[in-house]
Design a protein around this nucleic acid. Structure first.
Lengths: 187, 187
DNA sequence: GAGCCTCTCTACCACTTGGTAGACAGATTT
DNA sequence: AAATCTGTCTACCAAGTGGTAGAGAGGCTC
């Protein structure tokens, strides 16, 4: 069922039920037996993706780490997810497009994660480990940077970065250094 | 003609020639008289968008600014562009999706801008104004952060940020602070 | 074995898709 | 005035779209 996340690579509109069914070795009507409409299928895929994302985030935050250690754990998790399941980040990209079909659906399910992340940032600021600023806006910057570095493959090509494993490792280290500089007070 | 950038808001696959023609008050066949195919039209739109992007970047870098002043000028330009012409960043988003139709086309046209940006970063590092690191990877981080903060409206909603003008101003200031901390050496 | 339930199938439908062929009106050239 | 060129139109097409109706196969309980 999760294989249906072909939506994540090609997008909703560009993926027909016929193509999906052929890829699965069944008839389109079998899909429509399980899901009343294409839209419903898409929403089910979104729910499934949301679960995977929440699960990954929980796994990266289960060790009660603080400061940059916690941030680093999340970075590693996201970058690994981007390699292992690129359709996941692709679906996020598709659905978080302004004016998307089911943006709210994913947003609602993922909102608690964002809330926890913002709380974490606020706590770290209180503890003096992170530079003080608006937690929500800082979270937006962090999200953009991490997800962008994880998923902007075409931009990386345009910049001239190869897509070898060695570069990927370097990229992760550079991202950590970048965010450490941005987050940790200079003093 | 530039109004055709409806592709930027809805995406290529989701925008039919009929819909486009109706929106323009003409017949679809008139479009196909000027452009041999839908694909060709899309590529023309991409070229047009690339010109606008390059123009905006040139305007933001024409004053021979250095250090964070230059970065700040670009940030302001990008955020303003995101408000005034959201279809432009939308098109970039659409086309920079992994496995996109004409990713190379936009990438080729924009590559010089990236090259100039990377050179700028290297020069600033040599001058000691920016923390030393790999210019290309730093550029990727910067691009992701700025474009993300500029265009991730759905994520902002999920985080709980309102979309008022006041918040937009705050967001810009916070982004500048974020990148200053990330770029300028702590000493 | 009859009836029922679950599931996948074939057959079909109305509609939309990108694209072609060619008529026709207006302007420009000869 | 005839001929040509330019640009938009109507008419049409084959292919593909999401979705419906219903047949039929296999397993289940009575």
């Amino acid at each position: 069922m999760a294989a249906l996340a072909a939506y994540g690579t090609d997008g909703y509109a560009a993926t027909s039920l016929d193509a999906l069914a052929e890829h699965l070795g069944i008839r389109k009507q079998t899909i429509l037996y399980w899901f009343p409409s294409k839209r419903a299928l898409f929403e089910a895929v979104i729910d499934d993706a949301a679960s995977s994302l929440i699960e990954a985030f929980d796994a990266a935050t289960s060790s009660d780490l603080v400061g940059m250690d916690q941030v680093e754990a999340i970075i590693r998790r996201v970058l690994r997810l981007a390699v292992q399941r690129p359709e996941l980040l692709g679906l996020v990209r598709e659905v978080s497009r302004p004016g998307s079909l089911s943006a709210e659906r994913l947003a609602d399910r993922v909102a608690p994660v964002f809330a926890r992340a913002a709380d974490f940032l606020a706590r770290e600021m209180d503890a003096g480990r992170f530079r003080r600023s608006d937690p929500s806006m800082l979270l937006l910057s962090l999200y953009s940077t991490v997800v962008g570095v994880a998923g902007e493959f075409e931009v990386q090509r345009a910049i001239g970065l190869e897509s070898t494993l060695r570069v990927a490792v370097e990229r992760q280290r550079e991202l950590v250094r970048f965010l450490r500089a941005a987050l940790v007070p200079s003093g």
